[in-house]
Design a protein around this nucleic acid. Structure first.
Lengths: 102, 102
DNA sequence: ACTGGTACACGGTATCACCGAGTACCGCTA
DNA sequence: TAGCGGTACTCGGTGATACCGTGTACCAGT
């Protein structure tokens, strides 16, 4: 019912600005998703890449190994919009169930 | 991250009043979860039963085969409270990410 | 040379929820 | 009385998400 939520969050983060896996993990942790681990994020990123929702550009870093920078392509932006629509729908229903139930 | 959400909804419905599988499915569909199918609900109910979160009472129906009525026990109520706490936490973070991202 | 932080990939796994088929009770009607 | 539609539950199989741990590797500072 709500699967792919974390993937949606990752899409949103990428949609804001070009970024890379390690930074996305840090961002998610900052946002309060404390238990999201880097391995999970990389899994999602590889899936996004496989599903052709992102454009990838590998560039060297000055403080470590090269980074893979991601940006959304058209399909990715559509997917993101679909995700938010679905999220709003489902989460509002659940909130309604929580409050009073009608 | 959000798995078990549907299970939480089912717990909430049972928490409101003693009810049974077929009626729960109808209720969920009414609430807007149109694609939730009875098989899914029964799977969840069997899991709740196996995990000892509900009390079950099988009683005959006047319009069909016997029904299995469910009520929450203490463990079920605790699980429900935990679910809502977690839901509120996670959904608020996601909403925050959606609006502006700070 | 070693440690610690940065950065990514990969195999394995648990579990949720979906799907479909199967069983069975009941009332109505043709 | 046979069949149909609605009610009601069970079960095996499946796909996908996200978790977990490990391995690899680059870089800077001590």
């Amino acid at each position: 019912m709500l699967k792919g939520t974390l993937e949606g969050c990752v899409l949103e983060i990428i949609g804001r600005e070009e970024t890379y896996g390690y930074a996305i993990t840090r961002r998610l942790n900052e946002l309060g998703f404390a238990d999201v681990i880097d391995g999970t994020v990389y899994t999602i990123l590889l899936r996004l890449e496989r599903n052709k929702l992102v454009q990838v550009s590998k560039r060297p870093s000055e403080v470590g190994p090269p980074r893979k920078f991601y940006t959304l392509n058209d399909a990715g932006r559509r997917e993101l919009a679909t995700f938010w629509t679905k999220w709003q729908y489902v989460s509002s229903r659940i909130d309604k169930l929580k409050e009073g139930g009608a």
